[in-house]
Nucleic acid binder design. Structure first.
Lengths: 138, 138
DNA sequence: ATTTGTGCAAATCGTTTGCATCTGA
DNA sequence: TCAGATGCAAACGATTTGCACAAAT
């Protein structure tokens, strides 16, 4: 427990953030398992379930702080809510439309070739591939 | 003018929609030029500018009707607002992050290869490639 | 002591909905 | 006639903000 906490504290400190009780708890939920895709709401209820008292405002604050610090990556797949991905490396996504579930696709599994020229004075900030998947209607 | 109107009316009729004054006016704004990327707000103000009286609710209704009818395609690039594309063919997008501007990339200009297997019982509903572009900071 | 974070409730923004009224077939 | 469209205003859900209080350095 101390080990994990220490790791998280260092991680948080490196991001120039103060390791507060709530922040550590959220980091713990986010970064202790494998890769995760969460929304503010799911993280909030998860926190409450585990007895961590945090307000939604704090959830949003920290999701944004973590994102700015490069600890999270925002994934835009749904017009109505924001997803955050704990996998910040270069990769893509399956999006299961019915249940709003995301799954990583490692960058190596998709070849994006022949990207057209971009306007002078601009830089590519990311190339996002989203494969939307639906259950068969039979 | 009649020619255009007639074309639009047929288009609307084929979509099983009634060619009402507002609907025709909106279709005219959407489908008379080349390919366009619009939001509810931009379409609304454009309509008002041209003296077409339409409520926002009607704009939303019709954007959705047109989308369901396959006359428009929704593009999810920005968590805070929805874009609709008059180009419904298979293609991708540049997204200029600073000004929220979209630009088409024809499907032929990007090769997406080696798409991984999708779960049994599911079908790919679309493969969206978004190249996010930012102005250089110099 | 000073700066940063937190929680609450109110405010905001895009979008949707309910309902009375109008309009096209 | 009458289903389908429209407009308005109210409702909505996700996100944000303002501000008083609490915690970290």
């Amino acid at each position: 427990m101390t080990a994990i906490k220490c790791d998280l504290e260092t991680k948080i400190r490196k991001a120039n953030l103060r390791p507060t009780r709530q922040r550590i708890a959220l980091a713990n939920l986010l970064f202790s398992g494998g890769n995760r895709h969460i929304t503010a709401e799911t993280l909030h209820s998860e926190a409450l379930e585990k007895g961590v008292k945090v307000s939604l405002a704090t959830i949003y604050n920290n999701l944004h702080h973590f994102t700015e610090a490069g600890l999270l990556r925002e994934v835009v797949v749904d017009a109505s809510k924001s997803y955050f991905d704990t996998n910040t490396s270069d990769h893509h996504h399956f999006f299961f439309e019915e249940d709003g579930y995301l799954e990583d696709i490692s960058a190596g599994h998709i070849n994006v070739k022949d990207i057209p020229d971009i306007p002078v004075g601009t830089t590519i900030s990311s190339v996002d591939v989203i494969i939307r998947v639906r259950k068969n209607t039979e």
